[in-house]
């Protein structure tokens, strides 16, 4: 695997727009992905993630704008540009009537310089040795995912594009994928990973672009983007009314009315009389001590990370103000 300098731009997307049937689907997308970094592409379903990815790999032609991969323009020299890319667009597809090995051989023949040893190597990387000679129609979703990644890695790409790779994976599979992605990045590969789950991206990615309604709202590290977005802190007291009064008395604690917060209902399901607040997390310990001194028993205090929705809300609010 070729070591790429971290400052090299591997993928550059400039002012890309796409209209389909006169309707602007992608309004303006601009970002760069550097060598050896894991880049998250975050947006709700229908924001234009897949359309953008399809434009990156020449499945869809942009209406305007420029996409270059390792310096090669995808529209003018698709052959040269695609040589540096491995990708899985949406689901990992394969010819189900052929074996896993036949599938890899099929795609190996489409590119120069991939021999049998390389096929064996990628099969070992994704850990599919025992089943590779079985027909793909007998594969589970997780195995198809692995086969898809093996296929994408065949050509020793500098950029690997994965579209919602955690879809359909169980928690163990997601953890394995995360470690796998980190390993590839450590070897110098750049990874472009799309997702609609902030938590996923947060754990996996160095930098993130956030897309909504066909526009990139922000690009930066996850921490940078989350700065200024308060965590929710959810309190449960033995005496709910007394607890509420206590919280209300604190100047730097804001009680969020039940209909205003954006915490997932499933998270709150088991919490009776929960008080949802936004506050500085450093103050939690002191407040617990104060409650205990006042004779109010604290059942639980829970910090809930901001959701993607919250982030969007803040960004779109900022937009309308600024």
């Amino acid at each position: 695997m070729q070591k790429t300098n971290h400052s090299d731009v591997v993928l550059s997307v400039k002012n890309v727009k796409k209209q389909i049937g006169g309707k602007p689907i992608i309004k303006n997308v601009t970002f760069d992905v550097y060598g050896g970094e894991i880049f998250g592409f975050l947006g709700p379903n229908g924001a234009g993630k897949t359309t953008t990815i399809r434009m990156l790999v020449d499945l869809i032609k942009p209406t305007s704008g420029e996409i270059t991969i390792c310096g090669e323009d995808i529209q003018r020299h698709p052959e040269a540009a695609l040589r540096s890319v491995g990708c899985i667009v949406e689901n990992p597809e394969a010819y189900s009537y052929m074996t896993g090995w036949d599938n890899l051989e099929h795609f190996a023949r489409m590119q120069r310089g991939i021999d049998e040893a390389r096929i064996r190597e990628v099969v070992a990387i994704v850990g599919l040795e025992t089943r590779i000679h079985d027909k793909v129609k007998t594969f589970s979703l997780g195995m198809r995912q692995r086969l898809g990644i093996a296929q994408a890695l065949l050509g020793r790409p500098k950029l690997l594009i994965l579209d919602e790779p955690t879809n359909g994976l169980d928690p163990k599979g997601i953890k394995e994928l995360r470690e796998f992605v980190r390993m590839l990045a450590d070897q110098g590969m750049s990874l472009f990973i799309s997702s609609h789950l902030l938590s996923e991206i947060q754990l996996m990615c160095d930098r993130v672009a956030i897309i909504s309604r066909g526009e990139v709202l922000a690009v930066g590290t996850v921490d940078d983007l989350l700065r200024g977005t308060d965590n929710y802190v959810v309190w449960q007291f033995e005496q709910p009314d007394a607890g509420k009064r206590l919280l209300a008395g604190e100047r730097d604690v804001r009680i969020v009315p039940g209909n205003e917060h954006r915490i997932d209902e499933s998270v709150l399901a088991g919490m009776k009389d929960a008080q949802i607040t936004t506050m500085n997390q450093d103050r939690v310990a002191a407040l617990v001590a104060k409650a205990v001194r006042a004779g109010i028993g604290v059942v639980s205090v829970q910090s809930i990370a901001p959701t993607l929705e919250q982030l969007f809300l803040r960004m779109t609010e900022g937009e309308s103000i600024g």
Partner: peptide, 14 residues
């Protein structure tokens, strides 16, 4: 139908 066209057309072949 099988979606394999995406794999086929994203390889470095015109």
């Amino acid at each position: 139908t099988s979606g394999t066209i995406k794999m086929l057309l994203t390889r470095p072949v015109r």
